[in-house]
Computed example of a mutant assay.
Amino acid sequence: MGVIGASSSADSLAIAPLFTLKLIPLISYAASSSALSLRAKYPAFLRTIGSNKDLVDVIIRVLQHFKWTWVALLYSDEAFGKDGLEVCIHEVVPTEICLAYIAAIDDNTNFLNVFQQIDLQNISVIVVYSVQPKALALIEAAVVHNVTNKVWIATDTWFFSKSLTNRSEIERIGTIVGVSEKTANLSGFEDFINSKNHSKPHNVTGDFVCEQDCNCDDITGKDILAEEASYNFQVYTATYAIAQALHNVLECDRGKCKVNGTVYPYMVSKPVDESFAYFSFFLSFYLFASVLKPRSRCGQSCCRPVGFEICKMNTEDSKTLKLNKENHFIFAPSLIGVVFTYPLII
């Protein structure tokens, strides 16, 4: 009836045309490329995460609020970073913000040279629009090369990394401000995970593993819950949107459905599109207690308000960090504020 994924923009751009041919709903929980907003080209594609345009819009608001107009932009040399670069260059034009230094980062980047160029231009604010591995390598290099007193603007692709918060002396590099979509705790999710058997099924032989099970006897529900949960809410929203659309097609009510027969993906595609906007708005209102008013559809686009949290990593004040049993810091960011951007081209 529909597919949830893909997680990356590159994969989504590659497979979206195939799903368009049969109008099979494809709902991504993490692909943020602005190119996927072209509804005429990708009519079967939807997503439960903001696009890069939404994220850049909020980053620019943060820069404007603090009057940071002389900044550097470092981006990962792949689909996510390149799209962010393109959107950033376009969006800063009507502002007073100057991208004084722009550089791509990859496995072969000479970070010392990058930091020297930034210092030569007296830049104190660095926007890092990057996937996690490249961003973490950059921050590690900043610590090693004794980069100090900078303001780092982080995307949520790397801001919540546990290896980042566990890095000693990270407080020396300056202040890290993260911009991420608002998250929500899913009621009952923890009980659901703890109720599952995460060991290999007894009636399965060989290397075959079911999606619902894990062929790792050492993994517990606690281990799963300890992992980064950045996309839990987005995956939940995508799953519910497809279920609600199927519910509408079959005209189900109180456990009974009026329609009997075969349901094809194209029959679900339009209801998914329609219920998606309503459901996204409802969840935003219910979970975030936001005073939002539903608006009409934006031309051919499906629109919903998107909330972003602006957080500051508490690295300089040891009182805001706690140690777990492994003597690692538990990330405890300070919420600076919340920004709602509208519309989101899903």
Rank of each mutant, 00 (worst) to 15 (best):
V3S: 10
G5P: 03
S7Q: 11
I15A: 04
A16E: 00
P17W: 05
L23E: 14
S28H: 08
A30M: 03
S32K: 13
Y42F: 13
G50N: 04
S51N: 10
D54M: 11
L55R: 05
Q64I: 11
Q64D: 02
Q64R: 02
S76I: 01
A79H: 09
A79K: 08
F80N: 07
F80C: 05
L85E: 04
H90C: 04
E91Y: 15
T95G: 01
C98F: 12
D106S: 06
T109A: 04
T109S: 09
D119V: 05
Q121V: 06
P133W: 09
K134I: 02
A137H: 13
L138F: 11
I139C: 10
S168Q: 14
K182G: 15
S187F: 15
I193N: 03
H198A: 08
N203I: 02
V209C: 15
V209G: 03
C210V: 05
E211F: 13
Q212L: 10
N215L: 00
C216H: 14
D218L: 11
D218F: 15
I224S: 02
S230R: 14
Y231S: 01
A243E: 05
C257K: 00
V259A: 06
Y266Q: 05
F276M: 01
F281Q: 02
L283H: 11
S284D: 08
V291L: 08
L292Q: 10
C302G: 04
N314K: 05
L321Q: 10
K322A: 12
L323E: 12
H328I: 00
I336A: 07
T341A: 13
I345N: 12
